[in-house]
Design a protein around this nucleic acid. Structure first.
Lengths: 202, 202
DNA sequence: CATAAAAATGAACAATGTTCAATATGGGTT
DNA sequence: AACCCATATTGAACATTGTTCATTTTTATG
């Protein structure tokens, strides 16, 4: 099933329109008619390039995930070049993640809102993208001399990511009331660096 | 605005019905007509005791939060009686949280799905309930001799909760594929205890 | 029992995702 | 240029769902 150039263009317009709408007002405000209007196509056209809105959201999320991967990748080459030690590398990664979430808040939130509201499993293509995120953590973990097998490091990478993710989610949720972005950054740094120290001095 | 006994009964029926439906099929499957049918009342009756479905979900979430608080409270008296040290106390708290989330998965998920999808701020009554969760962490943190002011401990409690929350969220999401409940428990224990060790040996 | 206040009802409306018969378009062939 | 047909596009129509409100039913009171 090859995509004709016309369909490809339409698909791009639709994804871009949806991305803009999510970015502006969040996933909950995404309406099929708004997408069509912004993409300059008819309502039905959306369904000629996506099975349903869910599939479209998945495409938007894939782009978001790629953008995040870009930032992490750029950061990775810097750290390697600078021969940064494992602890600071990991703390830096958490900062990159926080910055991305804060700057692309709605798109980043959509990544997780969607998974929760959908019963069906997300395609393994997406699962691989998530795995990719964990991979960025394994490098600095390998530098730290913790007595861990590769499998254990994999689990640990996942756990560290999840922990930072939790702090970012709950921290950004009520940024106004309690926590400035800077304070949140310090909190994340404190926990990450404490966890790393605790792991190495086992 | 006092609640008449009849309205009170209706309200209870509606909340119980909603809770049962969420518990069975998740927040996304909650439909006004199903609630009415299960509560044995008319569709319109719901709106005589709740402004809208959002307000009803808030009531369900409040009950869930209270159940969680109960479990944490029971655990707290045990730990005090047993004079458990701070690190094991904190690890135990994370296990109580994980068990609650795993056993009441849908209701627990509703706690967070809802907040994300609603733009309006959640009432401060609910915010206080959340604060209450953090308070359960401050006790064992106070036992550990970390050089921290009460305000810093408050922030730290919040951060630790968030970190554990993140591991539980992402851990339970794909329980089948990668992580058994027991393995998840071990992972959480490893991170929490490492963080605590890192904090005390600062 | 009569009557007013309160409560409950469910038909109707609005918003939204999805489908599909009808219409447009584009490119190849003569 | 004219014709044809496969393909793409359209938007009216339908299904689902939250919400409202005029109407009906129930309850309480004198």
């Amino acid at each position: 099933m090859q995509a004709s150039p016309r369909k490809e263009a339409l698909r791009n317009n639709v994804v871009q329109a949806a991305e803009a709408l999510v970015s502006a007002d969040g996933l909950g405000a995404l309406k099929a008619r708004d997408i069509a209007s912004r993409a300059g196509c008819s309502l039905g056209a959306i369904y000629t390039v996506f099975k349903d809105i869910d599939a479209l959201i998945l495409a938007v999320n894939e782009r978001t995930l790629m953008q995040l991967a870009d930032q992490l990748s750029t950061f990775e080459v810097q750290q390697k070049a600078d021969k940064v030690d494992g602890e600071r590398w990991l703390v830096g990664l958490s900062h990159v993640y926080l910055n991305f979430a804060a700057r692309s808040k709605m798109l980043w939130l959509a990544l997780f809102e969607h998974r929760m509201s959908v019963g069906s499993e997300l395609p393994q293509e997406m699962a691989e993208k998530h795995q990719m995120l964990f991979d960025f953590i394994e490098q600095p973990l390998a530098i730290l001399k913790i007595g861990k097998s590769p499998e254990e490091r994999q689990l640990l990478a996942r756990s560290l990511f999840s922990a930072v993710h939790g702090m970012v989610v709950l921290g950004l949720e009520k940024k106004l009331a309690s926590l400035s972005l800077e304070a949140l950054k310090e909190q994340i740094e404190e926990i990450v660096s404490a966890a790393v120290r605790g792991l190495v001095t086992r």
